[in-house]
Design a protein around this nucleic acid. Structure first.
Lengths: 213, 213
DNA sequence: GTCTATATACTGATAGAC
DNA sequence: GTCTATCAGTATATAGAC
């Protein structure tokens, strides 16, 4: 993680645990990550982790929830833009950038969503997972709404709205899987990547106003 | 799995195991799936599984390799098409359809690729995994090559070829994550979905010849 | 070929020292 | 707050009966 935006949400002791946990969950996945793995990455024993987090699931959901907070915060900054198409483009860029800059946390979100699709949850996890999915759905709905507004104006054209939204979000989120941070990477580098994702997605939705920058 | 295309590759006894294993790996992921889970889905005990497969990893890689075979076979049927753009479109449709129709196996491929990116492999798995990744890279290169041919002809426009290929394949593969097979589903239903993915991806790549069907 | 043990190892979580 | 020690549960894989 570079310039981790979670710095100022919780006290630093817990944030360091969450940061390393996010890295472990990204590298090996939830099921294959042991608490000892996280402790090893922290350079301590699991006693420290269990002092702050009741269970491995608790730790995982804390990571994923932070990931969704990043996303909501990212697109909130676009609310003031009046024109639907412009707002959508700004949201898309913010989302794609968020995927790059908070990769580890977003992998936890992704795994959580997959867990839900699989229906593989224990009763104790269910409430927490349901809340995460609700947050994800709500987030997704914001995109759907602004997409539909743009379509009504004839600025987008696509047959099925549900599929279009999936394709849009998958494309915009995909950097979290294939983006490799370089050594002396700048914000500008990241923006350039995110922009290509945005152009791809908007063109894919049949953007009428040729995608201007 | 519906009309499973793996039917005629191995003898039916092993194929049934692989089919159920693919389902389990899709539902819970590799790490969270136990051999007993697979056995339970088969309605037998793990003795039967270990008679044919040396280890859980062996079972998993067998599933993933079959998944890649499906893909290679799918795009091989497009080789005869001369015009790059038309060939690309046919390949894209074949790929997207393959993702829908062999979902379970493709989830194993995906997990294998992620395992590789994470570098989380035991020495014994490494060779098998390396081969899987090589197969995936080779497959991916076929797309890259035909994309570049179309770009040279001015039929596609995108800034970075590497990113474009990732976006293309992610969009085309995404149905394996969100496609929900319906009850009385026909081939035509699947084709309709795949087509929207193809149109999205090609338009996203700046297809000049307005995507005709 | 398939099943029934069983050996062996690992992981999540707890309790108590410091 | 963090560490050490430990328990209980579960999973991979094997060996041998049938």
């Amino acid at each position: 993680m570079n310039g981790d935006p979670a710095e100022n949400l919780l006290d630093e002791g817990q944030m360091e645990i969450l940061r390393m946990a996010a890295l472990c969950f990204m590298e090996r996945g939830f099921a294959a990550t042991s608490i000892d793995d996280v402790a090893r990455k922290l350079g301590c024993t699991k006693g420290r982790i269990y002092h702050f987090f009741a269970s491995k699931a608790d730790l995982f959901f804390s990571v994923a929830e932070i990931g969704m907070e990043f996303n909501h915060k990212a697109i909130r900054s676009c609310e003031h833009i009046a024109a639907p198409f412009d707002r959508l483009r700004a949201m898309a860029l913010a989302h794609s950038l968020s995927m790059i800059e908070t990769r580890a946390y977003q992998h936890a979100v992704w795994q959580g969503v997959e867990l839900h699709l699989r229906g593989a949850t224990t009763p104790e996890q269910r409430n927490r997972l349901d809340a995460l999915i609700a947050s994800r759905d709500q987030y997704s709905d914001v995109f759907r709404d602004v997409m539909e507004q743009a379509r009504e104006r004839g600025e987008l054209t696509y047959p099925d709205a549900g599929i279009a939204r999936q394709l849009m979000l998958v494309a915009l989120s995909s950097p979290m899987f294939w983006y490799k941070p370089r050594d002396a990477e700048t914000l500008d580098d990241r923006i350039k990547v995110a922009r290509q994702c945005v152009d791809f997605a908007l063109s894919g939705l049949g953007a009428r106003p040729p995608v201007k920058r």
